[in-house]
Design a protein around this nucleic acid. Structure first.
Lengths: 229, 229, 229, 229
DNA sequence: AATGAATGAGTATTCATTCAT
DNA sequence: GATGAATGAATACTCATTCAT
């Protein structure tokens, strides 16, 4: 009555509450069921996208796997594209949430520990859903303009975060002053590569690193460099 | 490849010289023309892929822009997929060629200079065709299994090269001994990010670096790290 | 029809009074509410059909505009087609009612006056609901076999009425004897055109005639013809 | 090369002749074949539309009946709608051509004869393709805005022609001066009804009139009226 | 070699109708 | 009676590829 709405209305903005539908138990349960279905569809779609790729994936694959009727899919998502966007948003939001600044509070852990935790948190946010990460990394680039913009903004945000962290570190004398922007891109490149390693495994048949190892490698490489000290 | 042949035969291996076509002037000219057309189609296809993306690109776009008939396209390339592969192969081959080892010969430049030149050569190989690099970077991932394998092998090769270089450096006492494999991936991630920066520009509206700056950043970051020395 | 029943039962013929629903106030009120809703739906559907055309009109348009749930619609009408039929029946019934014969009673107005009134009544019956007339005229033809038959019968009836009137007129010496059937069709064509003019306005940007003018034109043209007398 | 073009290009305007394709026999024959196919498709589509109605007709019906592949249909017509438009245009053009003014030349037939011929020509233009006329009459109204406009303009044109003819007749003293516009609409209504009679037959099981009878009835009714003279 | 007309497999989306609550 | 989530049949259109000329 109030919440379950066609996928179409997702952009309609204000939801008007109908006069005789208080948020009673029935509505609330319906809402819960709706959310479950939505999740189920997202999960199934992720599997399908992971297996066949976005372009090869057919709506039929998704609804067959989910065991719902064709129309039901469109009750929850506007289009094939929309469900991909939902998946993408899920991942990006999760990663964004995992990105936090360094606290200078007295009771905060030492800076270097905070940094390590921060990096681990970001990696973990990706690795928590390896399939999703793989799909987003493989299928999202160049899919459509909107997806491009989301990724662009997402990376720009990460870059900003890194550049700020570098600038702060330099101010505190913890880091060498370098071309901060380029260095931030370099760090980002390292992180992206480690994420790929974590979800895909290495190209050669080597061992897939753990999150801790990957974070360690990032910090070791970024901070100390490869030259002997 | 001498006599103009259908695209079908590209995998036929040995080219048998037809008995009544001596490598005379006529045949040679035909061959030249054929090669020109092929290039023309590749160039045009690159533009189309760059503009519309692989999936949005239609054969009609390519032949219209090239001014040839539909059937002619298939005389030169087996399929839409095949012309993409040709483009991909072009880029990968060019980059592969640019990757050379460090020479220990007495008359060779100092090692650090050689390394810098090597990195610059690789970046230059990508940047020489920014459109092609962009297309391959954006469209190739997840396109089909064969493309995936090519990229996988390509990156594995680069990784191997870097890992070997790192191992050599360590042996010579020029580099810290670290987890060589992971470190090589880290360097590769940095390089990939710099290539993207070079062909796409930075996410924020900053300045696009030059090849020299990018190479400088890679080496500075990789060798010295961000921590003060 | 007393107790509110599903749309399904509209053809069930005899309505059996359920044993425990005496025609008490409650039932009667329910009936009234039901009738109101039905009208509301008809009115809304008319607007929707007028605006978007039958084929473009979606049930969603109707229930949204009416503010009822999907299922409710089907409580009142069997199908989208059925509500159109109801609308069509409304108009045809109203027009049929407006068609009356000429009275020969002594106290009746003169025949020519009666005829004029008759024509005006028919025109008025259409013009009373210009939207409905427009919808029926535009959408009904070729919609389905049943609609076709209704229109066919309706026009056949009008034609019969006109043919009889012509025959009577001829018998009374009031009219020239002509090919009565064809002449009746001719009159009918004139009337239909005037109805269209009355609800749609003329093709050129001329003035829309009044009912009186239209009736006048029909009679003048039909009776006197265009040749000088 | 020059003429056979995708349906898409029908509005591209100027056809540029490719440098090495003189209008030789091959091109000319291809053009002829193309025209034949187009006609075949039009004929088949007409049958399908006549049998099932526009909305019930599926592209599959047309291509099955025509024995061509799906894609071939779209080589000749942009869409289902487009082929209907082509059919509509055919009929309207034919009828428009049949409408000619009255000649005042000395050697011209008497005016009344010319008028009768004119009316007969119009009727004949419709009746020459009863199926097409039926389809256009039944399916075109309210189909889409463009169709509406075409019909609107078509009837406006016919009305103008009639109104002019009436005005001329009045000036020459051949006709009563009346409300010319309304009278022209009345005549048009009569003609439309007769056309319907000619292609559909009368509602009652009477005899379908011949063109001559229909034209006779129109003139008799329009000129002399039904009142005794 | 070149052409371009013909082919037909492939699929996302709509919306009238149903029925469990 | 009322609701609205679920259903699934139905179909126009695209475009890579083929092949007769």
């Amino acid at each position: 009555m109030s919440t379950p709405v066609s996928a179409r209305s997702r952009d309609e903005g204000l939801e008007v509450r109908s006069k005789d539908s208080p948020r009673d138990g029935r509505a609330s349960r319906a809402e819960k069921i709706r959310e479950q279905r939505r999740r189920e569809l997202l999960d199934v779609a992720l599997k399908v996208f992971a297996q066949r790729g976005y372009h090869q994936a057919r709506i039929a694959d998704i609804i067959d796997a989910a065991g719902v009727a064709r129309g039901t899919f469109y009750l929850y998502f506007e289009s094939k594209n929309a469900i991909f966007h939902a998946l993408l948003d899920d991942l990006l939001a999760r990663v964004r949430t995992s990105v936090v600044g360094v606290s200078m509070a007295g009771n905060a852990p030492p800076v270097n520990v905070q940094i390590r935790q921060s990096v681990e948190r970001v990696l973990a946010a990706f690795v928590a859903s390896p399939d999703l990460t793989r799909v987003v990394l493989r299928e999202a680039v160049g899919l459509d303009a909107e997806v491009d913009k989301k990724l662009f903004d997402f990376y720009a945000r990460l870059h900003r975060w890194l550049a700020d962290a570098l600038a702060n570190g330099a101010r505190l004398g913890l880091l060498r002053v370098s071309n901060g922007d380029l260095a931030a891109w370099a760090v980002l490149g390292t992180i992206k590569q480690m994420v790929q390693l974590l979800v895909d495994g290495p190209a050669d048949s080597g061992r897939k690193p753990t999150i801790t190892e990957a974070a360690e490698a990032i910090l070791d490489y970024s901070l100390l460099g490869l030259a002997p000290r």
